[in-house]
Amino acid sequence: MFALITIVLILIFIVFLLWLSYYLGYKKHLNQHGVKRYPKRTGELTLFIDGSELYTSYFEDIRNAKGSLEIQFYTVCDDKICNEFLGILRQKAKEGLIVRLLLDHYGSKDVKKAEIKRCRDAGVKVAFSHKPSMPCLLFTSLTHNHRKISVVDGKIGYIGGFNLGEDYLGNNPKLGYWRDHHLKVQGKSVDDLRNQFYRDWNVATNEKQTYVPQEHVTEAGGIEHHFESTNGAHLQETFLAMVRRAKRELYICTPYFIPGKVLTDELVRALKRGVDVTVLVPFNGDYPLVKEAAFRYYGLLLPHGCKIYRFYQGFYHSKVIVVDDQLCDIGSGNFNKRSFYLNDEMNGFIYTASFINRVKETIKEDIQRSELLTYESYQKRPLLQKGREQVANLFSRFL
């Protein structure tokens, strides 16, 4: 009996240390990082929803670079498309360009060390964000830099939901065709993407690199937008403001719908005041328990008239919110707790009605390839699935 009590006490102590490591790390993170809202700009935005079309444009731009490349991804892996990408960076560095590549320590863990060494030997400056560190080992192991930012010659920018890999071309036999939203940016706001890249680069490397902003860039005409970076906080408040702003219709597109109580309550209030709320998610999940964690919130929203569609023709990875014809969000931030409390994200907010309606049309097209989840079918879920949902809810903050 004494031995059993000792084991229990040791386990309780270990759990307490893990909790303390997470709690102290999170508090320190909040004190050091906040939200960065860049100014409203006008410029040219090109929308991509297909990986092949995006990569064709993206690879052409980085191949044609003349001065510098600043590139940041959550996921770069070890496959054909990623090796081609790294080969281009090596070639551009050999040509004398300044090439910086910032990867998330966890998201890009599959990149071979030999490939990184080849890049560095060729002159590419490579760094990794969010390496686990003491004393807050648990928190630093869980938080990631989820941003996807690329800047070519300080004049062309890319931001959105696509990472790099064969999966995003639809070549994963399990996930199938990959649907996402990404932006190509031209204009003064490219400086804002570059600013954010160097904020992250300097944190990861302890350097103090700066950049020279574009000169003589006019902002007359074009699409009105601004960018916003968040660091494991404040994104929930931004999404709350968007839900409260909706008067007629609200589209929420996300691969991971785990909004938490505060946002769910706000969505219910929107439904009660007559807002047509549509949620578009993938039919199948790409990570364990993510799909199950969403069902708790489906059950709270469906009785109030929320329409929930599940995309079945491949995997749906878009992170998009559309409020009436007034505001549209495209970026890396998901409608889930991980983006609210752990991940570094970068989102673009667009205000021009013509562009917003174009995005809305892509959503409506995807709804045609989706299945409507009814409250009746929700109530008939198998007992085993309900059990998995309960397990998923325990870990929902980290999914």
Rank of each mutant, 00 (worst) to 15 (best):
I5P: 02
I7V: 12
I10K: 13
I12H: 02
L17V: 11
K27C: 00
N31H: 09
K40G: 03
G43D: 05
G43N: 06
E44K: 15
E44G: 00
F59N: 02
G67Y: 11
C82M: 04
N83Y: 06
F85V: 04
D110A: 13
E115F: 08
R120P: 04
R120G: 00
A122W: 14
G123V: 11
K131V: 00
F139P: 02
S141F: 14
K155F: 01
I156P: 06
L164C: 14
G176A: 04
R179Y: 13
R179E: 07
L183K: 05
K184Q: 13
V185A: 08
G187Y: 06
V190S: 01
D191E: 02
R194F: 00
Y198R: 08
K208A: 05
Q214C: 01
E215D: 03
H216E: 11
E219G: 01
H225G: 05
E237L: 11
F239Y: 15
V243F: 07
V243I: 15
R248I: 06
F257W: 12
K261S: 00
V262D: 13
L271T: 13
T278M: 11
V290P: 13
Y298R: 09
Y298A: 01
F315S: 08
S318C: 10
K337E: 12
D344A: 14
F349T: 09
S354Q: 14
I356K: 05
E361T: 09
K364C: 00
D366T: 02
E371Q: 14
Q379N: 09
V391Q: 06
L394C: 07
L399K: 12
